[in-house]
Write a protein that binds this DNA or RNA. Structure first.
Length: 419
RNA sequence: GUGACCGUAGCUCAAUUGGUCAGAGCACUGGACUGUGGCUCCAGGGGUUGUGGGUUCGAUUCCCAUCGGUCACCCCA
C-alpha cells in the first residue's frame, strides 16, 4: 500500500496556501504595528518544560503529548503549545533585561495527540503573542486589542465574539474551588453523571456543562466573580475600562475556563458558532508566576494563541492566489533561445512568467495559457524572429499587437506594473 | 480514550435481491483544427473497489478485524 499522511495531520495544498499566506501576513503586520517582534522557537523541548509549564494534571500533559526518547534516553516532547517554549527562551537568553513589557510573537506548528475532528488536528498551527514583565492591566487590554485588530484585518470581526473573564489570583481560586466543590457535592443528585465525576477532577469545568438538567444547579453555584480579591477585582475592572475606552465589544462570561493551569486574572477567548464543537478561534490570558515557576525572574505575562486552521476555515477558500502574468510561447528551438533571456530578465524584476519549450503546437500552448490563467501570451515563431518582434496577445480580449523583441522585457514590466 | 456514520479512478459519484459491475462526469494527455485559447466531437492513460481475513460456486455488495475519514463526547486553537 502507498504511504499516506499519518492520522490527524494534513497537507496544505496550493489552492489553500493563499489563505494561509494572508493570515500570516496579516498577523505579522498587526503584531509589528503593536511593537511585537518575532521569535522563532524549536518544535521540541525537554518533556519536563511542558510538565512544569502547563501543569501536571492537565489533559494535555497527561494524555495528549507526543513524547519520545532520543538516543541518549532523554525524554523529549513535540510542543503542544508555544508559551512554555517562549518563556524558556525568554529566561535562557536573558530577554527580561530589555525594557518591559517585552513583546514577542511566534508562529508555527503544535502537536497534540487527540482524536481529529472538525477544526482539530494532531499537528496544527498557532500564532502566539506574549507580553512579558508588566502587570499593568493596560497590557491585558493591549494584547486583546491586538487580537481583535488581527481579525478585523481579515474581515472576520463580525463573525466572532470576544469573551472575557477573570479567574482571580490563586488564593481567590482556591477559596472558590473549596466552596464550589462543597456545593456540587451537596447537589450531586441533581447533576448528570459526568458532572459528578468532574466535581472531583476539575470542578471549574462543571460550570461549562451544556446539559439542561444541570443548569438550575449551576445557575445557583458559587460564582468565581464573588471570590475575587480586591486587587484582582480592580485589575479586571481596569482591563474592562481600557477595552471600553478603545470601543472594543466583549461579553463577560463568568464560566469561561481555560485548559492550562497557569492562567490567573484575565482570561479571554474569541469564539464562533461556525466551526461545530470547536468554537474557540483564539484564547489567552494572564499568567503571572509562570516565568518564575520555570526558573526565571518573577515576571508577569499575558498573551494568547490563535488557531490558524480555524482562522483559515472561517476565511473559506475565497483568497485568490497570484496568477502568472504571461506565458511566453516560443515556436521552435531558436525562439526558445531568444525568449529564455527575456523570461529571465522579467523574473529578475519580480514578474511571474512561464516559458514553453518550443515543441507543442501554438494551439496547445494557447490552451495551456488559458488554463494557467495568465493575462498575456507572447508568441514568437519563425515569422516573428525574421521581423525581430513578438506578438503580445491579451488573453481576455484576444487583442494582439507586435512588440520589438528588444523591448519585450520592458513591455512585460509595463504590463506587470499595470496589473 | 468513548460513540455514531462512512471508505469504488486525481476529484464528485454509479453498479438493480451477492451473478460481465469495475463504470460515468470532471480533470489530465493526444487527435479532429499545417501558427491562434475558452465551445464541440473522438481516442487514450489511470482502480489489486482502504487493508487483511472469513462466508459463498461467485463479494464493491454479507460478516469480523484493522487502518483512515467525518461528526459528537472529552478537551482545546
Amino acid at each position: 500500500m502507498t504511504i499516506k499522511a499519518v492520522r490527524g495531520v494534513h497537507d496544505i495544498l496550493p489552492p489553500e496556501a493563499p489563505a494561509w499566506q494572508r493570515v500570516e501576513a496579516t498577523a505579522r503586520r498587526v503584531c509589528e504595528a503593536y511593537g511585537y517582534r518575532e521569535i522563532r522557537l524549536p518544535i521540541f523541548e525537554r518533556t519536563e518544560l511542558f510538565a512544569r509549564g502547563i501543569g501536571e494534571v492537565t489533559d494535555i500533559v497527561q494524555k495528549e503529548m507526543y513524547t519520545f526518547e532520543d538516543r541518549t534516553g532523554e525524554s523529549l516532547t513535540l510542543r503542544p503549545e508555544a508559551t512554555a517554549s517562549l518563556l524558556r527562551a525568554y529566561i535562557e537568553h536573558g530577554l527580561h533585561v530589555q525594557p518591559k513589557p517585552v513583546r514577542l510573537y511566534t508562529l508555527g506548528p503544535m502537536f497534540r495527540y487527540e482524536r481529529p475532528q472538525a477544526g482539530r488536528y494532531r499537528q496544527f498551527h498557532q500564532l502566539n503573542v506574549e507580553a512579558l514583565g508588566e502587570r499593568h492591566p493596560a497590557v491585558d487590554a493591549e494584547v486583546i486589542a491586538l487580537l481583535v485588530e488581527l481579525f478585523r484585518g481579515l474581515g472576520l470581526g463580525e463573525r466572532l465574539t470576544l469573551q472575557l473573564n477573570s479567574l482571580g489570583d490563586p488564593p481567590d481560586r482556591a477559596a472558590h474551588r473549596e466552596q464550589l466543590v462543597a456545593y456540587l457535592r451537596a447537589n450531586a443528585a441533581r447533576l448528570c453523571e459526568e458532572c459528578r465525576e468532574r466535581t472531583e477532577r476539575n470542578p471549574l469545568r462543571v460550570l461549562d456543562c451544556k446539559r439542561p438538567e444541570c443548569q438550575p444547579v449551576l445557575d445557583a453555584a458559587p460564582a468565581l466573580a464573588d471570590f475575587l480579591g480586591r486587587e484582582a477585582a480592580e485589575h479586571f475592572g481596569r482591563v474592562r475600562g481600557y477595552l471600553d475606552a478603545m470601543g472594543l465589544a466583549y461579553v463577560v462570561n463568568p464560566r469561561l475556563v481555560r485548559g492550562f493551569d497557569y492562567y490567573v486574572r484575565t482570561t479571554f477567548e474569541l469564539t464562533t458558532t461556525e466551526l461545530g464543537a470547536q468554537n474557540a478561534v483564539a484564547g489567552g490570558g494572564r499568567y503571572d508566576g509562570l516565568v518564575e515557576r520555570l526558573g526565571g525572574p518573577a515576571d508577569p505575562g499575558v498573551g494568547f494563541a490563535v488557531g490558524m486552521e480555524r482562522t483559515v476555515l472561517l476565511l473559506g477558500d475565497t483568497t485568490p492566489g497570484t496568477q502568472p502574468l504571461a506565458l511566453l510561447i516560443p515556436l521552435g528551438d531558436e525562439a526558445v533561445r531568444r525568449l529564455l533571456p527575456v523570461a529571465q530578465a522579467a523574473r529578475a524584476r519580480g514578474l511571474a512568467v512561464d516559458v514553453g519549450y518550443g515543441e507543442r503546437k501554438l494551439r496547445g500552448e494557447l490552451e495551456r495559457a488559458n488554463k494557467l490563467g495568465v493575462a498575456y501570451a507572447v508568441i514568437v515563431g519563425d515569422t516573428e524572429l525574421g521581423k525581430g518582434e513578438a506578438i503580445v496577445r491579451e488573453m481576455k480580449t484576444g487583442a494582439q499587437r507586435a512588440v520589438p523583441l528588444a523591448e519585450l522585457a520592458a513591455e512585460l514590466s509595463a504590463l506587470g506594473g499595470r496589473a
